[in-house]
């Protein structure tokens, strides 16, 4: 077990190195750079810059150097823990990201809990009551859940809430709390706003997870070990929870890792639609403004979280499934 974890830990730096190259070239891929979009913005507001100023600006940000030098300088700074300064906001990236981090993580965790708490019981019910009324009901519901884009759900719910309850559901705080310091009232206000985005973000994942859980469990329910448990005289729900559910959940454990980057990003589009102060919309803005160091930092953090998430999944799986544990040692 320890060996298994160490082996995976040793792979981490290599993966992160590959991802850093990937992240850097992805953000470099669109034509032009921050200065180009800055000039365009200036032009749109009626002012302009001469070539000398432009060149000075490029030199100041190091944008005139060859790409590999830019990459090396960027990576060098990151290794020292410096994520650079946002060209757009003119503030340290670390500060910008950490400001939104707490709300992002809170929303992500809530979404994750909602998804699992709702999807797993639905999946178990549907599988154990196959072809019953509620099984069909959940199946139809799940089709809608998977097929409807989340931003669509967000828009519809926003409209419903506004139309019938006169509530504005955008943002995570009521107007009086937006810039208020942290008080008990602000926390309560946050929780009152947080559940709806969590439900909207979780709906799609819930539907997917419930469908997979149902299919996995249906496969397991016909296995001889279930019949054996029945022949031992166990009560039906007890044996279902102990044996087939345990085996049906195992493959899902490996997907937990994927949630980690999702927790961080939320859904970019939904967060933008709902005007949530999370990291997602910040990434979108950084990308459209070609704020390369901020975008690069966020993309790199996503990649790092994906790697760590996979590691967590691997460890969880080895811990839960003795077959995997043995294979490794």
């Amino acid at each position: 077990m320890t060996q298994y974890i160490i082996k995976r830990l040793l792979l981490l730096p290599l993966l992160l190195f590959i991802f850093s190259i990937f992240a850097f070239f992805v953000i470099q891929a669109p034509p032009g750079d921050f200065v180009t979009s800055y000039i365009a913005e200036l032009a749109a507001s009626g002012s302009s810059m001469d070539q000398a100023q432009i060149d000075a600006l490029r030199a100041m940000y190091g944008l005139d150097r060859p790409m590999y030098i830019q990459y090396l300088k960027w990576v060098g700074r990151i290794i020292r823990g410096d994520l650079g300064v946002s060209l757009d906001w003119q503030r340290p990236n670390l500060e910008l990201i950490s400001e939104r981090l707490m709300l992002t993580v809170a929303l992500g965790l809530l979404t994750f809990c909602f998804t699992w708490a709702v999807a797993i019981p639905i999946g178990i019910y549907s599988a154990t009551h196959q072809y019953s009324f509620f099984d069909y009901f959940f199946t139809v519901f799940n089709y809608f859940g998977v097929a409807t884009p989340t931003f669509m759900t967000a828009l519809v719910l926003m409209w419903l809430a506004f139309q019938y309850f006169g509530v504005s559901v955008t943002g995570l705080f009521s107007p009086q709390y937006v810039d208020a310091p942290w008080t008990w009232g602000r926390v309560v206000d946050l929780l009152r706003h947080l559940w709806l985005p969590a439900v909207i973000l979780g709906l799609d994942g819930t539907a997917r997870l419930a469908r997979i859980m149902r299919a996995n469990l249906l496969d397991e329910l016909n296995k001889p070990y279930v019949e054996m448990a029945r022949a031992k005289g166990m009560s039906e729900w007890k044996l279902v929870l102990k044996y087939p559910v345990r085996l049906a959940i195992n493959p899902l454990i490996s997907t937990i890792g994927w949630y980690l980057p999702l927790i961080f990003s939320g859904s970019v589009i939904v967060a933008t639609v709902l005007n949530l102060p999370t990291i997602g919309p910040m990434l979108l803005r950084a990308l459209t403004n070609q704020d390369m160091f901020l975008a690069g930092a966020i993309v790199l953090i996503y990649c790092g979280l994906a790697v760590i998430g996979t590691l967590i999944s691997d460890i969880l799986l080895a811990w839960l499934d003795p077959r995997i544990r043995m294979e490794e040692s």
């Binding site: 296995k223 001889p224 070990y225 054996m228 345990r246 499934d321 003795p322």
Partner: peptide, 12 residues
């Protein structure tokens, strides 16, 4: 049962 391999749970 016929198949002892399949009749024991593999994770218990």
């Amino acid at each position: 049962p016929q198949e002892p391999m399949a009749a024991f749970s593999p994770v218990h």
